[in-house]
Design a protein around this nucleic acid. Structure first.
Lengths: 338, 338
DNA sequence: TTGTAAGCGTTATCAG
DNA sequence: CTGATAACGCTTACAA
């Protein structure tokens, strides 16, 4: 066994062929004679050769890696989604580099810059910052193809995959009305000035109420301070203590819904007995939660697969005009709205 | 604005210096005169130059990226842990590439091979396969420094960070005994033949019972089939239906504990009224679960920081002998064992 | 302090 | 079908 790094040259020497033949075998590029191919493969096995990704990437301009930038992999939703993207990319022979943006504009910009530095072949970027004065993304003609997830693609300049935020939340709200709820609160996130996921879901709630002839009561809009389980729990307390006679809650997502249920529980308010609650996302834990959580379930795998497909097709042809897709969803009824 | 990729050469030309001066400014290597430095920085800003990571990595042999290989980023525990590692690495100027092993030996081997291909500067590998005939890792003298997490470092050849699986589970079991439980079941994972996390935690349970003079009853050992929430829920059903008079459950982790509680709930068994349940990990969701989950909380951030420190110190000096660390833990009492 | 020259390991190109 | 040659963009080593 040779000491030091084993290169393609070493393999070539071992196999008694030229470096290019080794390269051709590895990349299955041009036709190589069966004998030569066999000798090369044997030499690779024998030497334990591994291709050097840096050299390949430098020369070819391609890395075989696509980036996925999400706010937080520790968040159940994004962790699950990342796993799906990794699977889908793998199916096409690509690796995935996961970045965290922290849901702030500078993080999102950094992910774009990083994608260029690392020679990523594409970037799936989950946009989530709610900053009013967020600067644009630092895109150049060197940036790899971009697929945007989330609500913040105002200009429609990129491929875009989203979920039916308005329709989904409207369906969730309608479901509560069908269950007999009269005083339906909504729990949303911060800033509703910009077109964020929060805004869209809030709009879906309003739309559903209005369609049923219910006048939205602004006092029934609760804003969760910190977008965390504990923040949502505190919101549950505020709902229980509000004296507004709330008998239904539309939560902006499952994590918040569970926090709210917990907060209500802390105050002796039972779900679904006293208040019915519905979420959005259908996290893995939602089915096991007590009470199991009714929710809007977007087809997460569809979304992941579509994002990967869009990236790959744009790698093939960077000039196709931007496309937009919305993942299908269904309302899942469980105990929390029984 | 120049078309095509902007290289260090372009920046040098723009600044009226040599390429090396640009490189020296970027890497803050040798002393550069203030004027030259300023001109270079201006040229970088003006041109939007981004260093090419592939070229740097090819030449220097370093990528500035460390790998983190975990079974599944969609798993709440590993998602949370990945977020911590990314933060800690960032603090030291490193990026993190996340790989998934699927908790199988081939996946773990692939992560090691990949770390070499990608020129990663180090690899944090969470070993979790329970396969009896798992082959060794494909390590060569080209492999980057390795830090192993989990229980499966039989030879003690690598830096190793673990949690106090035995002591933690023993403390959890002792806590149930202190709460008055007499018939304490344990819910563990598959294969107990090898020294896995499952085995260690199971041993901690036995140790605690024996220390308190309780003879372990083999019928009280429940194996969760699929290591999933649904598998754990089914195990809850089996416990409720067993007729063994179980009044306490030590679950191998929080995800399983919550599934078991849900399964007991399905059968009308109340927690903690009829059965007390304790988990392991202290997931973010455990505090909001109803009932809130008592658990063993290892110091996850400590573990992440230690893993990163070990990698970095070994990058500095590959020759230091393997070191082993165990994260501190505490038992957190909540409603599920009240 | 700055610049010149060489080469890291791979692949595109083109000649055999 | 195979091989020689020249880059890809950067940093190491050394010279000025």
């Amino acid at each position: 066994m040779k000491r030091g790094r084993i290169t393609m040259n070493d393999v070539a020497e071992l196999a008694g062929v030229s470096t290019m033949t080794v390269s051709n075998v590895i990349n299955d590029r041009v036709r190589v004679s069966p004998e030569a191919r066999e000798r090369v493969l044997a030499a690779i096995r024998e030497s334990g050769y591994q291709i050097n990704a840096a050299a390949r990437s430098l020369r070819s301009g391609r890395s075989g890696v696509i980036g996925l930038a999400v706010p937080q992999v520790g968040n159940a939703y994004f962790g699950m989604f990342a796993a799906l993207v990794i699977e889908e990319a793998q199916r096409h022979g690509y690796h995935v580099a996961v970045e965290q943006t922290g849901a702030v504009a500078v993080g999102e910009a950094a992910a774009v810059a990083q994608s260029r530095r690392l020679q990523l072949d594409g970037l799936i970027l989950s946009l989530a910052n709610a900053e009013a004065d967020a600067p644009g993304l630092p895109l150049t003609d060197q940036s790899p193809p971009l697929v945007v997830l989330g609500e913040q693609d105002p200009a429609g300049r990129f491929d875009h995959v989203t979920v039916a935020n308005e329709a989904g939340t409207a369906a969730a709200t309608a479901h509560l009305i069908d269950q007999g709820c009269k005083r339906i609160a909504v729990v949303t996130g911060g800033n509703l000035d910009r077109l964020t996921m929060f805004t869209r879901r809030y709009n879906g709630y309003r739309t559903a109420l209005e369609e049923r002839g219910i006048r939205p009561d602004p006092r029934l809009r609760f804003v969760v301070d910190a977008l965390s389980r504990e923040g949502a729990r505190a919101t549950g307390h505020r709902i229980a203590d509000s004296g507004l006679g709330v008998d239904g809650v539309v939560a902006l997502n499952d994590m918040v819904a569970m926090g709210v249920i917990r907060g209500l529980h802390d105050r002796g308010v039972s779900v679904p007995g006293d208040v019915r609650v519905i979420g959005f996302d259908d996290l893995p834990e939602s089915e096991v939660f007590i009470p199991s959580l009714s929710t809007v379930r977007p087809d997460h795998r569809w979304k992941a697969a579509k994002a990967v497909d869009l990236i790959l097709s744009r790698i093939d042809d960077p000039l196709i005009p931007p496309r937009e897709f919305t993942a299908p969803f269904e309302v899942v009824q469980r105990e929390s709205t029984a």
